[in-house]
Design a protein around this nucleic acid. Structure first.
Length: 561
RNA sequence: GGCGAGGUAGCUCAGUUGGUUAGAGCGUCGGAUUCAUAACCCGGAGGCCGAGAGUUCAAAUCUCUCCCUCGCUACCA
């Protein structure tokens, strides 16, 4: 039996813009919490991410800004990589798809599939922009919607009436590159006949079985994931082109096929694999150990990415052979902002790099607010007012306050020396029992991807601490019963120490501060060491500070500008 | 249009397989307290569970119709 390994991925962000809180709440923060928890249990986990740097959108943007595609992706790769690091999203590797290692990995993957006869080749007519000598995706053709008359409908969809369109239906079709009317031109592509895989996919999705073996428990998969996959499978899978006519991407590794690149789904997800290779190389590991046998592959994504991670990528992995399929794809729904959808073009967003500047040192406040209202089962709403309230009444009022009162009392009564624990009464014992149950309770919820509820339980441990102090009133007993006071504070300090360990996945910066304040070592999640009597804790300092109305008003004023 | 996921307290959200008075946090109101960042602790009020119909002894939960939000709709990534 090999040691259990966990391979956790977050969707590769597209490197044509900065990150906002919607991205964070959906795919990065939940994964980071999950991974930090596994690490805290000293399990073998690798956390994979990187920039997705290919595709037409990047070439278009480059053209518009008079830059090279590589300059665009360099800019956002570096910005996003730094934002993640500063925010405490602690990837083991943040790779990029423009790296040669990735190109080779993707090409080898394609060649292997091709040699196994996984693709069919087909020639078809596609729209083409003569001035730019480029084939056009439906998305890059605009025209008048035949249904509602809206004059800026896309070739695949009208934004106004929501109808699904095909570019040939558009009236007055125009290329978004040149503005000219596109012509039709023949081109050859490699197609993946997904319908050939419908049977095993259905059994895998619905029953968690593959090749007669139980792979996962479908009841642990979210309803939106299973629902959407079934919808696709039951509606009849079709073939899908796996190559594109473009010069910015991973070249199709076949001689004489210039100007063709691999489609994003033979490119970006394989980025998870190439990133693992890079990490393994840098850390003296075997990358394949994290992709086969009983390795657990877990993809954290947003709901827009479900079929790609739960249908297309699994097909590719299975046909290639030698890989595990995902154990779970905990897709999140979307986060709204002040009741409206996030929008880059309207600047209706909170940009991570701006938050980090405006709220320096307060990463954990946003982590807390986003996890508290994470869109785990439905779209949720982030408001600045909620953010402020969660900080001021929950983090400052409940969490920070508990730690402060414990550390202040210890310093005031015993100059920071941890008092001894004497005889326990039944209430002490029940509080300790409750405390001891939290690692398993919170951990179990994290393993079920119920991070919001897990965070609620963390706060319940803080509440237990506050209530214990309120009920026992050590500040009154100090004059009459020194021993009793010592026992109470000893127990309160154990709770604080538990909080140091259990808060780490959610609030890593706070956990670190708390560790320094208590002057203790990190403990393993399920073997938390108690703080010994006579140990010295440091002076009290505030874990969180109040956020005033003015700051919130400033942030509100930035929206939509 | 088709399909998927949602619509539950003022706000943000939980509610397994139908089963006593529908839950939590925040907010609000009242009380208690002072070790603590006027914080903590205790208690109360507050809900026709999107609308309507049906099945059932019993529906937030199952069925049907309708309304609203979001996603997917196969060449956006």
């Amino acid at each position: 039996m090999t040691k259990k390994r966990y391979t956790v991925t977050s969707a590769l962000p597209y490197a044509n813009g900065p990150l906002h809180i919607g991205h964070i709440a959906g795919a990065y923060l939940p994964a980071d919490i999950y991974v930090r928890y596994r690490r805290s249990k000293q399990q073998d986990v690798v956390f994979i991410c990187g920039s997705d740097e290919h595709g037409a959108a990047i070439t278009l943007r480059a053209k518009k800004e008079g830059m090279e595609p590589q300059e665009i992706v360099d800019k956002y790769h570096n910005l996003n990589k730094k934002s993640f690091a500063d925010f405490g999203i602690d990837f083991d590797v943040y790779h990029r798809t423009s790296d040669p290692l990735h190109h080779k990995t993707s090409q080898d993957f394609f060649s292997e599939l091709n040699s196994k006869g996984a693709f069919t080749q087909k020639t078809s007519e596609q729209f083409y922009d003569e001035e730019h000598s480029q084939f056009l995706a439906d998305r890059y053709i605009m025209g008048t919607c035949p249904k509602c008359g809206y004059d800026s409908a896309y070739g695949d969809q009208c934004e106004k009436c929501g109808s699904a369109l095909s570019p040939s239906e558009l009236l007055n079709p125009k290329s978004t590159l040149s503005g000219n009317e596109p012509i039709k031109k023949e081109t050859k592509h490699w197609y993946l006949p997904m319908q050939d895989h419908a049977d095993w996919l259905k059994n895998w999705i619905e029953n968690g079985e593959l090749d007669g073996e139980k792979q996962h428990d479908p009841s642990q998969w979210r309803s939106q994931v299973i629902g959407q996959c079934k919808s696709w499978i039951d509606g009849g899978l079709r073939e899908r082109a796996m190559t594109r006519d473009l010069d910015w991407g991973v070249k199709v590794p076949i001689e004489g096929e210039d100007g063709k690149v691999l489609y994003v789904w033979l490119d970006a997800p394989i980025g998870y694999i190439s990133a693992t290779k890079q990490w393994a190389k840098d850390n003296g590991k075997e990358w394949i150990d994290y992709w086969q046998n009983d390795a657990e592959l877990i993809h954290f994504i947003g709901k827009d990415n479900i079929v790609f991670h739960a249908i297309i990528f699994p097909i590719l992995l299975k046909v290639h052979g030698g890989f595990v399929l995902p154990k779970n794809v905990p897709a999140n729904e979307f986060l709204n902002l002040e009741g409206q959808k996030l929008s880059t073009s309207r600047n209706w967003a909170i940009w991570l790099h701006e938050y980090l500047k405006d709220f320096e040192g307060q990463q954990d406040v946003l982590r807390y607010a986003l996890c508290s209202t994470a869109p785990e089962s439905k779209d949720t709403d982030f408001t600045w007012s909620d953010f402020q309230t969660r900080n001021n009444s929950e983090l400052v009022g409940i969490f920070g306050n508990f730690i402060n009162r414990v550390v202040v009392l210890t310093n005031k009564y015993w100059e920071g020396k941890v008092p001894e624990r004497h005889e326990l009464d039944s209430y002490d014992q029940s509080v300790l029992d409750e405390m001891d149950a939290f690692p398993e309770k919170i951990g179990g919820l994290i393993e079920q991807y119920k991070l919001r509820e897990a965070l609620t339980e963390l706060m319940n441990l803080v509440r237990l601490g506050n209530k214990y102090l309120a009920d026992t009133e050590p500040w009154k007993l100090k004059k009459t019963d020194e021993k009793r006071t010592e026992t109470i504070l000893n127990i309160a300090l154990q709770i604080a120490n538990h909080l140091m360990v259990l808060s780490e996945p959610f609030l890593p910066f706070t956990s670190h501060k708390l560790q320094e304040m208590l002057n203790v070592q990190k403990s393993c999640w399920d073997k938390i060491k108690s703080i010994d009597a006579a140990h010295h804790v440091g002076k009290a300092s505030l874990l969180f500070s109040k956020i005033e109305d003015e700051l919130i008003e400033q942030q509100m004023a930035k929206l939509g500008k």
